[in-house]
Write a protein that binds this DNA or RNA. Sequence first.
RNA 1: GGAGAGGUGGCAGAGUGGUCUAUUGCGACGGUCUUGAAAACCGUAGGGGGUGCAAGCCCUCCGGGGGUUCGAAUCCCUCCCUCUCCGCCA
Length: 426
Amino acid sequence: MHDIKAIRDNPLAFDAGLARRGLAPLSVSLLALDEQKRETMQKLQDAQSRRNALSKEIGMAMGKKDVALADKLKAEVAGLKDAITQGEEQERVQTKALNDALAVIPNIPLATVPDGKSEHDNVEVRIWGEKPVKNFEPQQHFDIGEGLGLMDFEIASKLSGARFVVLKGALARMERALAQFMINLHTDEFGYSETYAPYMLREEAMYGVGQLPKFEEDLFKTTSGHYLIPTAEASLTNLVREQVLDEAKLPIRMTAYTPCFRAEAGAAGRDTRGMIRQHQFSKVELVSITTPEQSDAEHERMTGCAEEVLKRLNLHYRTIVLCTGDMGFGSRKTYDIEVWLPGQNAYREISSCSQFGEFQARRMDARCKAAEAKQARYVHTLNGSALAVGRTMVAVLENYQNDDGSVTIPEVLRPYMGGMTVIKRP
RNA sequence: GGAGAGGUGGCAGAGUGGUCUAUUGCGACGGUCUUGAAAACCGUAGGGGGUGCAAGCCCUCCGGGGGUUCGAAUCCCUCCCUCUCCGCCA
């Protein structure tokens, strides 16, 4: 959510920011709404002020039992009533119009974000490891999983339709092992505090992180009116909503392992086979709440925490910074981590680490204050996947596959899998 | 799911239509006193918004939203939340 006052102060900078996202200028129309609203407020407040003064006089007249004077004053204030009623209604309508307009405008990219139109303009910032050399034609993860008899899309579709999977035996255990490994890394070594939070959220919370109102079609909604979380970011970030935090306690770092539910409304025909794009998948999420000064460094740190998961699994990846045209709605800078998939012969997104500035904080009313400061200010929020568990399993299967169809288990996962070293075909 | 009681400033807790500009206490901050502290005493305080160079002035906020009224913390409607009892339940 943007600050209308900031737009008022510097409309050209705002429009220039939108232009970097490939959007038409909006400051003129926004400021017109703002102008109308303030004009209404001015008139309304004048009328309210006079009403308050007269009402007080009525009260005093009644106290003195001077009914004649009271009636005279009542007649006078009655003339204000229409103006006040109309003014209140008008202010309500105009405020809503302005807020509705602001609520669907994406965040402005940071200066360090490269300009560009699409994913083709993203810029690689670093690359780690190397593509594994195989002396056979690598298979895709679904062929490997089905070959092992432990990954079943057919039965999943009977239960739930397309974009679901059933994992069995060692693969079901690997899903759990990956999550345990990731959570332990982030809590034990990186200082994130493990958190268990709701998977169903109210509309206000979804609005707070920017999922609503613009992306309702991507969400699942229950008969109770709750929304299923598309990411634990939604739950974790909202944990600081409507609060003023002590700056000395920042940054707050949280992590959670949760299922994620996505309607994938606009993804028809994309990644239809396999586990890459599912309605339900699990993910270990990182969320940081920081001061404005801390957020840039925290963003780098967080991305590093996510990358460390891949390093320990010895999976080749590259990190890219998304260009202005490819960033998500609320982000002002995003790093994607793309892992190498030999079966697909491609890099695929496995993590996305974003910083939002105060964009979400404004929507949630999450602020912080230093002990010596007079004024509270908005916190900065960040989040990153570390990692998407399903896609990590895909990467393990494709990178650790052997020519006999078996899959070697990465060393760091073995303690979580009862010492198992390889998953063999039946 | 049923019945009932509640939601007021950092906290506790008054306030059932008009000098509420929200009582009081605790805590906080500033001061007086003191070598220093405690105590006592005096004083200051919140959020959002409009306007103004500024000092200030004005509007709004007693869980959210709407309504009645000249006037609402107080009355009405509605939603949310908390607590108690009952029912069901991993």
